[in-house]
């Protein structure tokens, strides 16, 4: 169950997407998400889905594996769809007791669902193909200008990197504690909201204790290996753009151009 969450985890594979500079992938993901909201017509979605499909194929990660990562966010998806479906004013199609479904509601809810799915898959493509270290290196370097504004860029990216590194370990730990409590008759699945919240105490208390113990151990291990913040630190894998990265940027530019031309010339959205 918890093993299924794939967001934030790295999937080892030797693909062209894996080899790209993390800055390219970061820029690509941000760009993709912006475009997803800027071009919200049928054409925009088809292009977005197509582009994502090609990228996913290029990563060589099994599509099924990626889809499993969507499961935990289905709940959020349902809620958004639900609100849009019932609360959008417009041409009324169906009335269910006090709730009305409108034509506009269906369209907006449908768009929202597609957009969210694409957004989540694109974000997980980035984390699945980029190690947390690369990711934070990329962030650190592209956000370096914030240093001048006294934003602790290195510290923030180190924290992110560690958080990502420990996600699978803490998930495993959660799974284990959950099983241990189920073996003692715990029930996490039935009952009302309050009963369920109460049932979580035997899970959360040990989990927090374990997380603090790990954090403490890790801090000690980092200090023992001479970690003292970003000053004077060198890089094992400094980021340098290669040919592939420039091509990737070019492809992104091409993608924007196609969308723009389609909109301006053909009126497609």
């Amino acid at each position: 169950m918890l093993r299924d969450i794939t967001i934030g985890q790295y999937y080892q594979e030797d693909s062209v997407i894996h080899r790209l500079d993390p800055r390219v992938k970061l820029a690509g993901t941000v760009l993709y998400i912006v475009l997803l909201f800027a071009f919200e017509g049928i054409f925009g979605y088809i292009m977005a889905a197509l582009a994502l499909f090609i990228v996913v194929k290029l990563t060589r990660i099994p599509f099924k594996y990626m889809i499993r990562g969507l499961k935990p966010v289905v709940m959020i998806l349902m809620i958004t769809v639900f609100f849009n479906l019932f609360l959008t004013p417009g041409q009324v199609l169906v009335v269910l007791w006090k709730l009305t479904i409108t034509k506009e509601g269906i369209i907006i809810a449908g768009k929202m669902a597609i957009r969210l799915c694409l957004l989540i898959i694109s974000a997980s493509v980035m984390t699945l193909t980029t190690t947390p270290n690369q990711l934070t290196d990329g962030l650190e370097k592209s956000m370096g200008f914030l240093n001048k504004a006294k934003v602790p860029v290195h510290e923030i990216s180190m924290m992110m990197s560690i958080a990502l590194r420990f996600i699978p370990i803490l998930l495993e730990e959660t799974d284990k504690i959950m099983k241990a409590q189920i073996a003692r008759g715990a029930d996490f699945e039935t009952g009302g909201l309050i009963k369920r919240a109460k049932a979580l105490v035997p899970l959360l208390v040990p989990l927090f204790i374990a997380a603090f113990r790990r954090a403490n151990d890790l801090a000690m291990a980092m200090e023992a290996r001479c970690y003292r913040g970003g000053d004077g630190r060198t890089k094992m894998k400094p980021l340098i753009y290669k040919k592939e990265d420039r091509i990737a940027y070019a492809i992104m530019m091409g993608y924007i151009l196609i969308l723009l031309i389609a909109r301006v010339v053909c009126g497609l959205r």
Partner: peptide, 15 residues
């Protein structure tokens, strides 16, 4: 600390 073996081994020298 590293997500990949070699990155972890490089952590000390980087520091």
């Amino acid at each position: 600390i590293g997500q990949i073996v070699e990155e972890d081994v490089g952590f000390g020298p980087e520091n």
